[in-house]
Design a protein around this nucleic acid. Sequence first.
DNA 1: TCTGGGGTCCTCTTTCTC
DNA 2: TCTGGAGAAAGAGGACCC
Length: 339
Amino acid sequence: MDMDAFFAAVEEQRRPELKNKPVVIGGSGDPTQRGVVSTANYEARKFGIHSAMPLKTAYKHCPHAVFLPVDMEEYSRMSGIFKNVLRNFSPVMEDVGIDEAFLDISANEKSSEQIAREIKERIGTVTGLTCSIGIANNKLLAKIASDMQKPNGLTIIKEGDIESRIWPMPVRKLWGVGEKTEAYLKSISINTIGELAAVPLETLLEHFGRSYGHYLYEASRGLDDSELVTHWEPKSISRETTFQHDTDHWQTIAKNLAGMTRETLTELKERGYMCKNVTVKIRFADFKTQTRTKTMDELTHNLETLRKAAFYCLGNFELNKKVRLVGVRLGGLAKMEND
DNA sequence: TCTGGGGTCCTCTTTCTC
DNA sequence: TCTGGAGAAAGAGGACCC
C-alpha cells in the first residue's frame, strides 16, 4: 500500500484552495534556498517536477507552483492514522517509511481484491486521501504492482503474469536497482527486467558480487521469500545540515557539529539507547563526501564523551576546501538497561 | 548549475589480536 | 625476539530506499 503523492495530498486536504494547482513540498518551502523536492503533486509533475529535484530547478520548471515547507509532524500524524486502519485488516504489517506499508493478508478469509477495496475505502473515509495497492504473493511483486496504476490504483500480479507484465518493464522498476546499477546494466545492453532474467547466474555474480548478484537473479524472476519485518531496532541516529552557502569558517562548522551532537544525543536518550561510536560526515563544495569515525571504549550517552569524540573526528579531516554539509551519526546502538 | 535528510546494507581495506 | 598468517573488528565509501 502506497499513499498517492502523500505530502502534497495532506497539504491539499487541509488547504482546499490548492486543489488543481501545482504544489511542491520540499525543504523550507523557499525555492531560492537550498533543498530538494520531497513530493510534487500530479499537477506539478506535468511540468517535469519530481522527487529529489533541486527546488531551484523545480522553480525554473514552474515558477507559479505553490512551494510549501515539509511539515513532518502533520504527515507523521496522518501516517499513524492510516497505519492503524491497515492493522485492523491484519496485524502482520511492515512499515516502509512514512507513506508505505506491506500487509500480510494470507490469513484473511476474504479475497485479497475485496480486502484491498475495503482498505482503500476505509483510508479514504478516515483521511480523505487516496492510495495505490499492489497484490501479489511476495513483497517484491506487490511493491511493483502498487506502482503500476498510480494514483488510486489496484493491481494484482499473479505468478503467470511475470513474463507478460514484469519482464517488459525497465530494470529500474526493480526494488534495489537505482541510478548507478541502471546505467551499468544499460552499458552491457540490459534494459528490461526480462533481459536481466536472461543473464546466467555466473555472469551476474561476476559483475555484481555474491550478495547483489544473487538478488538480481531472483528478483528478475519475480522471486522473493523475504518475511515482513514487523519489529526492528534502530542501528544509528543521525543529524546533518547543508549550509545555505558553502563555508570554510571553522567556527561555523564546529558550532553546528556541537549543536547536532547535542540533538542526536537527546534523541538517543529519549529512545532509550546508548552508543558505541560517533561518525562525523563532511561534504565539500565539490560534493565529495568523507566520514571519520571514533569508536569508544564502552557504550555511552554522555555529552562530554560524545562531543570530544565528534571533535576528534573533525580534527581528522583536511579542511582545505569549502564545506557544504556537516553531519554526525551515533552508531553501535544498544538498548539502555532500565533498572 | 544543481544535487536534503534520515536511514540500511554491502564491499573493500586497514588495523588489531592471537 | 622476530615474522607471518588467519580471522575479527573497525573504518571508509558508496548504492539504495522513502
